[in-house]
């Protein structure tokens, strides 16, 4: 149920984001979603890709520092309150979110939330019990052409 997320260290200056993205594009690896957290001086690029093992190899060979993290994807209705509802469930269950980001799918009315939890296994259990749909890797790939 858990997804493998790659994260990269980037310096925060013009052109730095383009380089790793080009590197994996050149290998024909499809990016499902990405998120960028940054400070004035550096940033962390987080990626979910179709073939993470290959992407990791490609990026590392090009000299990037790459980390692998397990994250959890949840789909919610893409309408006002959809996110809030999911967050409330997590809060009631006292689950600690280290960070999160969201993306909308091209088709349909669903949005996907990506969470990094302190305890992903317990999170998956709670979310499933509360009737939320945890999206696994295969399903996520199927959303994207």
């Amino acid at each position: 149920m858990k997804l493998q997320q790659l994260s990269l260290f980037l310096e925060n200056r013009p052109g730095r984001l383009e380089a790793p993205l080009s590197a994996i594009a050149a290998e024909g690896i499809n990016i499902l979603t990405l998120s960028l957290a940054d400070t004035a001086q550096f940033g962390i690029l987080r990626l979910i890709v179709r073939d993470w093992e290959k992407a990791k190899r490609v990026l590392e060979q090009a000299g990037w520092v790459v980390n692998l993290t397990e994250v959890v994807a949840v789909d919610v209705l893409d309408r006002p309150g959809g996110l809030a509802e999911a967050l409330r469930i997590l809060e009631d269950a006292d689950l600690n979110i280290e960070y999160m980001y969201a993306f909308s799918l091209r088709r349909g009315d669903k949005a996907i939330l990506i969470f990094r939890f302190e305890d992903p296994d317990r999170a998956i259990q709670v979310l499933t019990e509360k009737g939320l749909h945890v999206v696994d890797g295969e399903e996520l790939m199927s959303f994207v052409p």
Binding site: S7, F9, I44, V65, N67, T69
Partner: peptide, 18 residues
Amino acid sequence: EIHPEIFSDRMDRMQALC
């Protein structure tokens, strides 16, 4: 220079490192 040993995907950890 950053390298795997000190890199984290969490912003707060990277800032704490600095």
